[in-house]
Computed example of a mutant assay.
Amino acid sequence: METTKFAKFTAEFLGTLVLVLMGCGSAVIAGADGTTGVGLLGISFAFGLSVVAMAYAIGHISGCHINPAISVGMVVAGRMKAAEAAYYIIAQTLGAIAGAGLLYLIVSNQAIFEMKEWALGSNGWGKGYLGEYNGTAAFIAEAIFTFIFLLVIFGSTSTKNINGGFAGLAIGLSLVLIHIVGIKITGVSVNPARSIGPAILAGGEALKQVWMFIAAPIVGATLSAAVWRSVLEKS
């Protein structure tokens, strides 16, 4: 029986909600300090494991994009129609906002809670943000990391890949790798929805800078899809 649009919408909504709640939650609640919290490595695995878990939970329903850049990439690669991608992106964005909202409801009820700049695991760059990399470094990193992320997705889900059953694991681990390298630069987005959700609630610099985390991942995803479709898939 064909999966309904509503089921796909719901799957993408819930999957993105979980990604933001658990990934950003690991940074906000579990802590970036490796001495008293999970540290940057732990945060990296939280994002990656969220993708692995959701891949096996909803992958058979919607493909588990939970990321507008992936949906755009699938359209460019010819694997998805633009109309379907549009409602995927709406579901993903709403799911990310809901995930950030749930995270806010949890952490705001802690006695010492303070809504600081780039709160709720928001992405950013520049003075005051983690490694204080500038906008150029941030854009390049986000575009390149998304390019690599999409290559893993295209390759691991290809019908030519005899190890396709491990696609969810490969995709999740690639996101772990990207976070290990990139957290200090931008906090790592490679996912416009993941950035939009926390930024809307955090406001301030996070909201001012969110355009970067929409534009750069889409550029990276588009380039990756073009390379995959025109070069690698034909090999």
Score class of each variant (00 low, 15 high):
A193G: 07
K184Q: 14
T222M: 05
A193M: 08
G187S: 11
V190R: 03
A199R: 06
G220K: 03
L223W: 01
V188C: 08
K184I: 14
S195R: 06
S189K: 04
A193Y: 08
I185W: 02
A202S: 15
I218Q: 00
A199E: 05
L223F: 15
G220H: 04
T222E: 06
I214Y: 00
L223R: 00
I214M: 02
I200V: 15
W211C: 03
I180Y: 09
T186Q: 04
G197D: 07
V219S: 01
M212D: 07
S195I: 05
V176K: 05
I178N: 13
V188H: 07
I183C: 03
V210Q: 10
A193E: 04
L177H: 05
G197Q: 09
T186H: 07
I183M: 08
I180Q: 10
K208H: 14
A199S: 15
T186Y: 06
I218H: 02
F213Q: 06
G220F: 01
P217H: 09
A225K: 11
L201T: 03
T222F: 01
L201H: 07
P192F: 00
W211Q: 03
I178Q: 13
I178H: 11
P192K: 02
A193C: 10
S195K: 04
I180N: 06
G220T: 00
G182F: 07
I214N: 03
G220W: 01
P198W: 06
A216G: 02
G182V: 05
A206N: 12
T222S: 13
P192G: 08
S195W: 03
M212F: 11
E205G: 11
I200M: 14
V190M: 10
N191T: 02
I214Q: 05
L201I: 15
H179Q: 09
W211I: 00
G197F: 12
G220R: 01
H179F: 15
R194L: 14
P217G: 06
S189W: 06
A215P: 12
R194V: 01
V219A: 04
N191F: 05
L223Y: 02
A225T: 12
V188F: 11
N191A: 14
T186I: 03
P192C: 06
I185D: 07
I196Y: 12
G187L: 11
W211R: 07
G203N: 10
F213M: 06
V176G: 01
I178R: 11
I183S: 02
G182A: 14
A199Y: 10
L177E: 10
T186S: 10
L201A: 13
I214K: 05
F213Y: 15
L223S: 00
V188Y: 12
S224M: 12
I218P: 00
R194Q: 08
I196A: 11
A206F: 08
V210S: 12
V210M: 01
H179I: 09
L177C: 08
P198T: 07
S189I: 04
L175E: 00
P198L: 10
H179N: 09
K208M: 13
N191E: 06
S189F: 08
A221F: 00
W211S: 04
G203Y: 07
Q209P: 03
P217M: 04
P217Q: 10
I214C: 04
V181K: 10
